[in-house]
């Protein structure tokens, strides 16, 4: 196992939207996930090696102008003070390139949501209202300007730190969220915008935290760099069934 990764055992979760006729439960194979979100320091080493991803070199098709904006603020001092904080303002393209460089990949939605169900004590919290309330409360708190160092973040059952309460996290297949921006109609595909039949029904309409993640994923594009969005990498477990997105 790569250093800094933890093994997530096979399991599954109930997705927010259940496709008509689709399974109510999505199985997830065992995989490896970074224990911590990728930090500014780690990302700086990547950029030093792969210069095309440096803020001054990146092509506009791969990131918008917010790309690594936090580095500009601390530029004269290097990355002092933010080195161990989660890297934010990274685009999906850049995050993907980073994971590739590390011989890993971005986790997919199913994997991320499955791990996100874990509390401190259990891999799946079920209907624990306290846990849901805690997660929801973070979502409804304004973004903080000073992020914590990744080591200081909340740790869940799997030993994964900072999955909730620090930054939003990119996933590989973010563009599976088929929305028009018109959230009230999103349970049915907008036929003029999307090709496809049938509706997807929200399994638990009161799972506001999941709705927020879904809405967030559908709000950004592959170039978007957002100050509250970071990422971590995953990789397959050798021998486990493939979990390609």
């Amino acid at each position: 196992m790569q250093q800094g990764m933890v093994r997530i055992e096979a399991g599954g979760y109930t997705p927010l939207f259940r496709d008509e006729g689709g399974p109510p439960f999505i199985a997830v194979d065992a995989f490896l996930l970074d224990q911590y979100p990728v930090t500014n320091g780690e990302f700086a080493r990547f950029v030093a090696s792969e210069q095309r991803w440096a803020p001054q070199n990146i092509k506009p098709v791969f990131a918008d102008s917010n790309y690594l904006a936090q580095w500009r603020e601390v530029a004269p001092q290097g990355l002092e003070g933010i080195e161990n904080q989660p890297v934010t303002n990274v685009s999906w393209f850049a995050a993907r390139a980073y994971c590739d460089w590390r011989g890993k990949r971005l986790p997919n939605v199913d994997e991320w949501e499955y791990v996100a169900m874990a509390s401190e004590e259990a891999p799946t919290v079920g209907d624990d209202p306290d846990f849901q309330a805690r997660v929801l409360q973070w979502y409804s708190t304004p973004a903080i300007t000073r992020l914590p160092d990744v080591q200081d973040t909340w740790r869940n059952y799997w030993g994964v730190h900072g999955l909730h309460g620090v930054v939003w996290e990119l996933v590989n297949d973010f563009n599976t969220a088929l929305v028009s921006g018109e959230s009230r109609a999103d349970s049915e595909l907008e036929n003029s915008l999307f090709c496809g039949a049938g509706a997807a029904a929200a399994v638990d309409p009161s799972d506001y935290a999941a709705f927020m993640r879904y809405a967030f994923r559908s709000s950004y594009g592959a170039r978007s760099s957002i100050s509250s969005m970071g990422f971590r990498c995953a990789s397959d477990v050798p021998g486990a069934k493939g979990v390609n997105p």
Binding site: D173, N175, L178, F194, G196, A197, A222
Partner: peptide, 28 residues
């Protein structure tokens, strides 16, 4: 391959998702 398709689709803002066994819902 699926990874290339995902990257090119993301580049052009195309969203898609398998639905059921046979269908793929996708941006028009």
């Amino acid at each position: 391959d699926p990874d290339e398709v995902l990257g090119f689709a993301a580049m052009l803002g195309v969203r898609y998702r398998p639905m059921g066994e046979r269908d793929i819902a996708h941006s028009n």
